[in-house]
Design a protein around this nucleic acid. Structure first.
Lengths: 221, 221
DNA sequence: CTTTAAAGTGAGTAATCACTCACTAATGAG
DNA sequence: CTCATTAGTGAGTGATTACTCACTTTAAAG
């Protein structure tokens, strides 16, 4: 069962499905854009610089992408949906409905897998985090589509374990917020604040999971 | 004692010391810049737009600030240092050395105060978060000056309470990371993700403090 | 080989950029 | 009032911007 879940999670690490139908130059353009966007930010990156780094004429960029923003969105969109994919797919429900699953196993598997994803796509995730607040389309995609789905699903998971007495009585949203804070806190520190530090992921994940489990366990008098 | 600490913390909320020696137009410029920077980002804000919003000629901006970046830094710098001020000042040490202080009181006071600070200066903090990664001067100021000081001081605080048996045995940096994650997780959700939500800060702060205290308490067999 | 569509090019363009400068207005000390 | 310093102005500047378009190259199907 745990193995099934691991396998299924692993399948969610890939970004695109084998880079379908892209010319060599188009791939170069995306790579160059990701590099420079992550380095200097979208707004202060010029299309001429992207073309130069990609070894392409500037016109080639606009043959494939109508505008500069189009290029940005084509980079961010797949990461945005894949990042939260494990919490959206219908599979999740059936995975979780197996009675013998424990909350900490769920936490461990999810944290390990999402960390792996962010490590693998760090530059694009960085671009995403920086650009979401400045592009209303991205904001609404997150706030009106992704979050409600994900939030609702995770809330149900939380209440499931709560009703089994594994978690303290508390509004599910607060429980969710604190679990996610602890997990993201590590991923952020690990990937963006001190990426060059020599991290022992295994150990740190155990620490965070224990932190959450003890912090949110029902209080015994 | 707790009152002393509260008073001292409150004094750290103000940004500038009564806006010294600024003309009316200069203040207008700063306000306009903060507004637009927070809204669209530094790189995609033009000086002409700032001038327009401030009701000033474009030349006036450059009378007071040599470059556009100069304007940005004059906005960010004071927030950057004031944001971490409570963890840098020498005062902190003597406040903490009082034996009867408990870790959870420290957490509570700090969290309440820093939340208040971020609420008060939310737009500038947003600008800061977005621009730090793209401006090496800011990065190094954070990584080489602020963090080492703050980190070292906080580590000492952690080990202090650890040696009293209030906290679990664990590398201080990990303890620090998890405490800060939990606190920042709330402040971030509260101020940036869902600022319009009807938050009960008092209640939520208690939840986070309890989460941390239980999550990091020494494990009893 | 011929044809056709798509991929790729790079000089060109109008708009916008941060910034300058020669100038006027306001202010405050002597 | 006088004068000197600072604050404020806005037209002007060269550089850069995202994007276009008439053109050439590539490649695969018939």
């Amino acid at each position: 069962m745990a193995e099934e879940m691991e396998q299924w999670l692993s399948s969610l690490l890939r970004l695109t499905d084998e880079e379908e139908k892209m010319t060599e130059k188009q791939i170069k353009i995306i790579q160059a854009a990701v590099d420079i966007f992550a380095d200097k930010g979208y707004a202060s990156t010029s299309t001429s610089e992207i073309a130069q780094r990609a070894g392409v004429a500037e016109g080639t960029i606009f043959r494939h992408y109508k505008t500069k923003k189009d290029l940005l969105l084509s980079i961010i969109a797949p990461v945005m949906s894949k990042l939260v994919a494990p919490f959206v797919l219908r599979d999740l429900h059936q995975v979780l409905d197996t009675e013998y699953e424990r909350f900490e196993d769920f936490l461990r598997a999810m944290m390990r897998n999402r960390l792996e994803f962010v490590v693998k796509h760090a530059p694009i995730v960085k671009i995403m985090l920086h650009e979401i607040p400045f592009h209303p389309e991205l904001q609404s995609q997150f706030k009106e589509q992704l979050f409600p789905q994900v939030g609702e699903r995770l809330k149900r998971i939380i209440t499931h374990f709560q009703s089994r007495g594994d978690l303290i009585e508390m509004p599910p949203f607060a429980l969710l917020r604190m679990s996610v804070s602890a997990i993201m806190g590590y991923i952020f520190t690990r990937c963006y604040l001190f990426p060059e530090h020599d991290w022992n992921d295994q150990e740190e994940i155990e620490r965070v999971v224990n932190f959450i489990m003890h912090g949110l366990a029902p209080r015994k008098e």
